[in-house]
Amino acid sequence: MFAEIEQYFRTERLPHIWCPGCTNGIIVKSIVEAIQKAGLDQDKTVIVSGIGCSSRATGYLNFNTLHTTHGRALAFATGVKLANPELNVFVITGDGDCTSIGGNHFIHSARRNMDLNVILFNNNIYGMTGGQYSPMSPSGAKATTAPYGNIERPFDICNLAIASGATYVARGNSFNTRQLTDIIYNGIANKGFSFVEAIASCPVYYGRKNKLGNAADMLKWQRDNCITKEAADRLPPEKKQGKIVTGILHHEPAPEYTTEYQKIIDKFQGGEES
């Protein structure tokens, strides 16, 4: 029931600006449910976002929120966390915001392993600016700037996160909301850089350009084309072809940045703040 999570929303700002059938709202609800499940203090939780459709989420969430510049959400979040490591910091970003404009911030944030929870809303396109292809638009997909199909290859952002040193990497989709809530919840528990790719659908630009049907058809596509990691591990390779693997893909704890930084402070200042 929405009444159970109403306290986490700025309800006077609703309904939100997202298009009919955009599943960003479903993902935001999963984030909120994971925060509620983890019992985080609203006043000690900060949600930082960049620019784009997904990044509008901070306007509707009743936490300390920061709507920053394009691609720089992770840079702002790094500053927030380093200034006050007690805060629980979440970053909401999109596929364009995180992998294109903020690509460098992303790999270095993952490498540093600061205790941030990053949720990337992957709708495969730049929705807000009119449907240009993004670094995560699949090859062959049509977009405003790729009318004959995209000739570039997309990032596998989860593999990029693992290669960059993220300690928790998971993928979910907006159809399987229970799984999405669980993987975000597990990411909160990980002390380090937690990255969750949430597959969203954009029926207005990506869906319409690629003739994927209406909003419900696109959700059903997610249901039919995603398989959990547990199921994928048991399947032969030919049955996994073209399927998107969801679930916890990587979890390998490592020393966390703010903890290591505090050790330096303790070592040279005896634990006293100057």
């Binding site: 029931m1 929405f2 309904p15 960003n24 709202g25």
Partner: peptide, 13 residues
């Protein structure tokens, strides 16, 4: 319906 409503418009009681 409630879990997949992107606009939080449905509550099942």
């Amino acid at each position: 319906c409630e879990n997949h409503c992107p606009d939080y418009a449905i509550s099942v009681v």
